[in-house]
Design a protein around this nucleic acid. Structure first.
Lengths: 215, 215, 215, 215
DNA sequence: AATGAATGAGAATTCATTCAT
DNA sequence: TATGAATGAATTCTCATTCAT
């Protein structure tokens, strides 16, 4: 009975789809600005330039836009990440370059909707549905990282690929997260440089010489 | 002073202090169980065995107990961490043992109030006051890690101690966090083992041989 | 005229009349299924296979279809009752047969749209317009019963024909009502048998012998 | 889990019980005046001289007051009916007097809250919970009538006591209902006189002479 | 004539906080 | 000082009706 008692319209025509998108857009803007709990439905509708009732003919409740917005957010991030895949390929089998490109890709992915990202990080912890959506994305990301590490197996010295992928994903995400959401006690460049160094020492079979003057 | 218009009593007598503690205790229990936003003040008062009004003679509003509770939580964690300092000392100048003891200490700190910890992780992102409290604690933790690394400077190969402390703190926290709050795609032991390996390769001047069969 | 500000079209062409009928049909179906208050106009339009706006070019508001539906319902019931007149005639001047045929006619009339009947019974009490429509129908029924009783004057022992018609109509209606809408504490056959017995004793000059084994 | 998740206070102190009663009173007044569906909670609260929120600390929702009001209504009616039992006793074994007293009792019971009575008659048909409450009351009334008929068995000529009680209850109720709620096509006295005559002919072993000039 | 997206006032309900006792 | 009933603004959601296309 998952969606059996839905009343909200599923628009197929261009106009309806645009309206739906406008609602998601407005909702995510407001969630970014004031947080999910402080954002009201009339406010979302008003921002989207429509009446409250219109909102409810596209979504059954406030939570539903949130989930739609989260999915859209993940789509945006995924698109961004995939577009970075090229740069990672280009780095070839040079260890430091590979790690560097990887970090760049993560950083860029985080820069998409930073405020929204922050709010979602909280909602993952507070809401089971958001948590579940996130779990699926993490799983995808985990597999992506794993296959990247496999591809570069010849230059890496990792034994447990799964555990390594998990750690690589989480810590990179976390550090960039912190750098973007809170102001860190240490300069961003120094942290990113040190993070890269750590990953090189951990992952690479041969270290190569450290590049100084990160920019 | 931002406390000029406070009305809530600051209890000095034993009885009053106990009452205040009972409120904090009840509030944190409920926050752990159902989350801050779903916990009501009358409910906190009721759980603490008193009338709603009594609550308001000890705290000006709901947020105030939360902050008091967060402070108490950090006190508990700090106490736990300090008690682990002994074990870290005992590990002496053996690199792997030092890292291992460090990880153990973090892990134990997280095990204190896991549900509350999870809720607070979200509130840090949602509430400026909780964020600020957290910032101060992170700063203390950062300094603590930094001085530990300094003490072990002879066996470490780190250049930027500040950046390294920051990274060490954040990633260890994050990984343990994930292991405890979400069920990870990889077994806990494998992740912790790999994390330890990463930190050793990163931090230690001489690697020593890896211990297999973590537990 | 109370219709001076009407906007809804009064269809004269065949197509328009059919459309109007389809709306009434759909509305009455839904009212039977979920009740008037829980039935929405968009839902009626959808069931009738048209857009919401089309509904409003045939009816000025929701109430108007209800009234049209009530009138149609009464037309159906009247048609049914009149078709039963033959059976009553056929019963001739045998007292018990006359009463029996009368009861059968009422029973059949109630069996037409039982769910709708039930809903309307409530709406009569809640809505002045429905009440008024009902009053007119009751008046017609009252006159019908009265003339039936007059026709059978020779075998009846009633003095106040008007009062008797009123009572006869109301109690027969009520008892059958209850039997159909609620499950009664006593079997239907026993109740109908006893009702017939009561009416015989009340109305007939000569009682005749009771028929047992009602079916 | 019938009442497990109730939040509404169950008052035990005098003040609380009075407040609760005041709400029921106000609600039933408004339901009598404008009907259940057109009565809003803020309006009930305002009529009861309190804020909306207060209402919700005594009742979980609007429906709950209705049900409490219905129960109170039935209590009032029952009390009235029982107080009429004396008059019925006093009528002794005179058939016509017995029937007359019975009718008087019904009539008086209906005169208590006529408008409310009318509204409830509709709600019984529209709401399963009200229907159920009514079913229980009908059952009680049914038993009461049955035992009255049994007590007067010597002067009655009824065979199926259960069916007769059911019919007696329903038709008397219905006729009085109509007389009070709608204006009948025939004068009230004539209808009541004829009803009494019908019941006498139906129920009594020996008829006695009809009293003319009902008053 | 038909469409169906949009409207927006209004209903139900919640909950942090106050205040008379 | 403690009590807990009372407050009422704020929030979520509904649905009969309108109107641009």
């Amino acid at each position: 009975m998952d969606e059996s008692n839905r009343k909200a319209r599923i628009p197929v025509q261009k106009r309806g789809i645009e309206t739906r998108d406008r609602i998601i857009e407005a909702a995510m803007e407001l969630v970014s600005e004031k947080g999910y709990y402080k954002t009201g439905v009339p406010e979302i509708a008003s921002r989207a330039g429509m009446a409250t009732g219109t909102f409810y003919s596209y979504f059954n409740d406030k939570k539903e836009v949130l989930l739609a917005g989260v999915e859209r957010f993940y789509r945006d991030v995924t698109r961004q990440v995939l577009s970075a895949a090229g740069a990672i390929e280009a780095a070839g089998k040079n260890g430091r370059d590979f790690i560097h490109a990887l970090l760049r890709a993560f950083y860029a992915a985080h820069a998409i909707h930073p405020r929204l990202h922050r709010e979602l990080s909280a909602l993952i912890l507070l809401d089971r549905d958001v948590e579940e959506l996130n779990r699926r994305e993490e799983e995808k990301a985990h597999q992506l990282i794993r296959s990247l590490l496999e591809d570069h197996g010849s230059i890496l010295s990792v034994e447990d690929l799964d555990a390594a992928s998990f750690i690589l994903l989480r810590i990179t995400d976390e550090i960039i997260h912190r750098l973007q959401f809170f102001d860190p006690p240490v300069g961003e460049d120094r942290v990113l440089g040190e993070l890269e160094e750590m990953l090189c020492r951990y992952l690479l079979r041969e270290l190569g010489s450290r590049k100084t003057g990160e920019g």
